[in-house]
């Protein structure tokens, strides 16, 4: 009765009880602890992962619902050669995290937003970035999202020169 799914590009067969929230399967069965447990009621966003590219709060999604789907966690953002995703690099440049506990979820939400919108406006950031940060890093998160999208735009137009 294993649940077949794919995590960070690798197919896996999950042994968990079908009603177990995806978060606990990711953390305890797969040992990927970068995805965090915050509120347990899909309110804070610390547990955000991508399910078929959609930002999803894994603490409240039974694992049975991800059968046949593709899941990406914070550990899966790096490219195969270990290079950080542009959003992760922007997070370092802007020195976003304080305690860091919510930042895996923040980054997953930001990556999904950028994939959807290209270069999100402040209003789009406000609407999409509903993750809670108890340290109050919101201004730096906004700055990093803008920086990440600027960087991506430059990368496609090398003639304009580097940063």
């Amino acid at each position: 009765m294993a649940i077949q799914t794919s995590i960070n590009g690798k197919p896996v067969a999950l042994a968990a009880e079908p009603d177990t929230p995806l978060l606990w399967v990711i953390r305890e069965e797969l040992g990927l602890t970068g995805t965090k447990f915050g509120c347990g009621i899909a309110a804070c966003g610390a547990c955000t992962v991508h399910v078929n590219g959609e930002p999803t709060r894994s603490c409240s999604l039974p694992v049975s619902e991800v059968a046949g789907k593709s899941i990406t966690t914070i550990e899966g953002l790096k490219s195969a050669d270990g290079t950080l995703h542009a959003v992760q690099q922007a997070w370092i440049s802007a020195q976003v995290p304080q305690c860091g506990y919510c930042q895996s979820g923040q980054i997953m939400a930001a990556v999904a937003l950028i994939e959807k919108t290209g270069s999100p406006s402040d209003a789009q950031i406000d609407e999409a970035m509903t993750n809670i940060c108890r340290c109050g890093t919101y201004p730096r998160i906004r700055k990093a999202i803008h920086a990440a999208t600027g960087q991506a735009a430059k990368a496609t137009k090398p003639a304009e020169g580097g940063a």
Partner: peptide, 20 residues
């Protein structure tokens, strides 16, 4: 630049609950 930040953007930072 803070030395603890790289581990906080790739999920490798260890918090109490991550101990096993």
């Amino acid at each position: 630049q803070r030395l603890d930040i790289p581990a906080k953007v790739d999920g490798s930072a260890q918090y109490g609950m991550d101990f096993s």
